[in-house]
């Protein structure tokens, strides 16, 4: 089967999105508080704790250096976990996808709806974190408000990547592999807690080629500091093209898994 076949999608994608939104709103108390607690803890421990010893990085206080990276990490976690564990539960245990494709919706619409929902989770987390970071004066207005629309693009990249893993995961435990082999290294080596320039050249290059978080952090940091550099355009192009390819790939991998 052609893995880059253009998907068959329509406005019905929103119906899948709405299904997930409705469930989210029903369980909002659990969903709302926990996901953004973690980046705040990191900010307190590393930004204000470790930051005392670090001093300034790239001409800014350490807390202000890592704050946009923590927003980027939150975008990554929100989307990646939604479209791995949560999507896998809906697909495999609850058979929600099977139920939906018995109606006029196509599987392509179900998967794209899941990915768009995963991106929305990224937007939700970002929107919760922004006022806190603004209150702490770690990010600047008005440019940092662009982090909100940007979180959708970042979310799309991580969601579609997650959906590719979901399409090939034999069991729910299989997600340990992408998490330990991919998400954790990305968390540490994407210019998140120290500048990318501190890495040896080959690692810098690898990080720029393979890690979406590197590009997400670069753009987030630019938006938070109130100015995007020329390099941001390359990162933006990287994210848009990789997001588009992974979205199409994940839909076709899912067709292979579920519609054989």
């Amino acid at each position: 089967m052609d893995l880059l076949r253009p998907p068959d999608v329509s406005y019905r994608v929103w119906k899948v999105w709405m299904r997930n939104r409705d469930v989210f709103l029903k369980t909002v108390k659990v969903n709302f508080v926990l996901p953004f607690l973690e980046p705040i803890l990191y900010l307190l421990a590393m930004g204000f704790g470790l930051g005392i010893y670090v001093g300034e990085v790239d001409g800014m206080p350490y807390a202000a250096f890592i704050a946009p990276a923590l927003v980027g990490i939150s975008m990554m976690n929100a989307s990646f976990f939604e479209c791995t564990y949560a999507s896998f539960v809906r697909m495999y245990y609850q058979k929600t996808f099977d139920a939906i494709i018995s109606t006029p919706l196509s599987l392509d619409e179900v998967i794209l709806g899941e990915i768009v929902w995963g991106s929305t989770k990224s937007l939700i987390n970002t929107s919760i974190m922004l006022p806190i970071l603004l209150a702490l004066q770690l990010i600047k207005l008005p440019d940092s408000l662009l982090l909100i629309p940007f979180s959708l693009l970042a979310g799309l990249v991580f969601s579609s990547m997650a959906m590719c893993f979901t399409a090939i995961a034999p069991t729910i435990d299989s997600f340990n592999y992408p998490i330990f082999l991919f998400i954790t290294p990305m968390f540490l080596f994407s210019g998140t807690f120290f500048p990318l320039s501190a890495l040896p050249d080959p690692m810098q290059l690898a990080s720029q080629i393979f890690f979406p978080l590197t590009h997400v952090v670069l753009i987030s940091r630019g938006l938070a500091a109130g100015g995007l550099g020329a390099q941001s355009l390359i990162s933006l192009a990287w994210l848009i093209s990789v997001g588009a390819v992974l979205t199409i790939l994940s839909i076709n991998l899912m067709r292979r898994r579920l519609l054989a």
């Binding site: 299904r19 369980t27 609850q94 099977d98 139920a99 018995s102 109606t103 006029p104 919706l105």
Partner: peptide, 26 residues
């Protein structure tokens, strides 16, 4: 379609299962 496996949506109530499904049919 009444499938062999029960694929009701456990995240919804009885009524919500039907109204959510109705939305897929516009």
């Amino acid at each position: 379609v009444v499938p062999q496996d029960n694929n009701l949506d456990p995240d919804f109530t009885v009524l919500e299962n039907l109204t959510t499904y109705a939305r897929y049919y516009d």
